[in-house]
């Protein structure tokens, strides 16, 4: 029954969506083993807005999230379209297997749910949900999220500290688990697909003192889906 509701909502999006205000309880679980999510930004917005769209270039606001975990620009952008927003529900990083819960009251017309957060350690990888139509029918719905590549920074897999965070700067700003290496030479120095796409995954290697990557191939990998979202519609 719940599965049917989910399918209906996902497939025939225009039929089952309510434009009325709703009360949502949203739970986000990081399904990965060794990847951290930076502060999440969760928003209900109308169908003309989106935080990202696959096969198109990332906005500057999304790049700031994907490369450095900075949600401030996206928050400002969402305010201009009168979105209902929850920022940083986990109060910081959401570690592998961690869960955070939040309440979101949506205004009339804000019937699409979107979520983004950077995945660390990556160059410009993020977990994302793009414009999921919020069902009108009360119930509990489950959505599985994938990892995306913003297409804005080469995946060199070099952990360089804070300098790697701002948009345009190469490198990964942090490996919060404290389990990355150093002195790698870099996997690649250019971005192949410049549009938002499914992340091809991290490569890593097993030499924490050198070789190509500063990431550990035994720890810093994942497969989709990378997050589970449960939405309770009151």
């Amino acid at each position: 029954m719940k599965t049917k509701q989910l399918i209906t909502a996902g497939l025939f999006s225009l039929c089952s969506v309510s434009a009325s205000a709703q009360e949502l309880t949203i739970t986000v679980t990081n399904l990965t083993q060794g990847m951290h999510f930076t502060p999440l930004i969760v928003a209900a917005h109308d169908e003309n807005a989106s935080m990202f769209t696959v096969t198109t270039e990332a906005s500057a606001e999304l790049i700031a999230i994907a490369e450095g975990g900075d949600i401030s620009g996206m928050s400002t952008l969402l305010a201009t379209v009168n979105a209902d927003v929850v920022e940083n529900p986990a109060g910081g990083l959401l570690a592998g297997a961690g869960t955070t819960e939040m309440n979101l009251s949506t205004a009339d017309g804000n019937q699409m749910l979107s979520i983004t957060a950077m995945m660390l350690p990556t160059n410009d990888g993020f977990v994302g949900l793009d414009s999921w139509p919020i069902p009108s029918e009360a119930g509990t719905y489950t959505i599985l999220l994938n990892a995306y590549d913003a297409g804005s920074e080469a995946n060199d897999e070099l952990v360089v500290g804070d300098a790697g965070g701002p948009p345009g700067n190469p490198g990964i700003p942090a490996a919060p688990g404290g389990n990355a290496g150093a002195n790698g030479t870099g996997i690649v120095d250019s971005q192949t697909n410049g549009n938002v796409h499914i992340h091809r995954g991290a490569l890593g290697d097993d030499d924490l003192e050198g070789r190509q990557s500063d990431l550990d191939s035994r720890i810093h990998r994942w497969l989709n889906p990378v997050a589970k979202v449960t939405v309770v519609v009151e």
């Binding site: 994938n146 990892a147 995946n155 996997i187 690649v188 192949t192 499914i198 992340h199 091809r200 995954g201 490569l203 497969l223 989709n224």
Partner: peptide, 9 residues
């Protein structure tokens, strides 16, 4: 490494 992929494609 460029040719790696994950679902969905």
């Amino acid at each position: 490494n460029e040719h790696k992929f994950d679902n969905p494609a």
